[in-house]
Amino acid sequence: MSIAKRAAFLLGLPVLLVLTWWVTTIGSTSFFVPKPGELAQTFVRVWIGDRFFEDVVPSVTNLAAGIVLAIVLGIGFGVLIGSVRWLRALTEPTLEFFRALPPPVLVPVLMLLIGINDSMKIAVIISGAIWPVLLNTIEGVRAVDSVLSDSARTYGINGWARVRHLVLPSAGPQIAAGIRQCLSIALILMVISEMFASSAGLGFTIVQFQRSFAIPEMWSGIVVLGLIGIILSFIFQWTERRVLRWYHGLREVENAG
């Protein structure tokens, strides 16, 4: 496919949609739907400047801390629980319950237990985002190829070397699937923790805009959240492609064969 054609496919529909939006709002005075130009101006005015450091940076820092801790804890406990059979049987139903519990309901609980501060927000993110990583890691560790596992044992590969070279790589694709789910839940929880109990941060600011009927500002906040989601998903895809390059190569060979 030529570059021009690819660019057309990449940008065609988005451009068409923005054009439609522009044309349909050209003569409208709708209160709810801002014009594209107006929204772009508001976006720059509201978010480029002090507010970026006051609201966006702290929120994103909490988000990053929550995600990193959720991934590290999830993989750590997942490897442990996944490798010990009785531990797995012991914890499985309890973990199923926590997986099924909609994470936002834990916000009021953690508010009570920790109080309203940054560690509460990080705890909220961890409490919801850890489950997909944990359960996928357990599942991935459990499904390690038994021939590989026995070979490793025969060669006396144990302890950390076993985790590093056998368990983690073979559970990798499963863990990646868990991390992808974890990212979107973490972002949702970041917003909710700020909407529920906070006086700063993205979630709080957007709700403030809505309550004061600052509609273009509210839309621009929605755009910011969307952009964070998109950046997160790009970072994830880029990292996953690096870390799991061997796996995607293997899939390609298998599919071709």
Partner: peptide, 26 residues
């Protein structure tokens, strides 16, 4: 499929809670 790919990949990661203020207004 090719024409919608970029749009879908763009809209999908937008967190649904971002729509809360809009939903309240509407």
């Amino acid at each position: 499929r090719k024409a919608t790919h970029s749009t879908i990949e763009f809209l999908r990661p937008i967190p649904s809670v971002a729509l809360i203020p809009l939903a309240v207004l509407l």
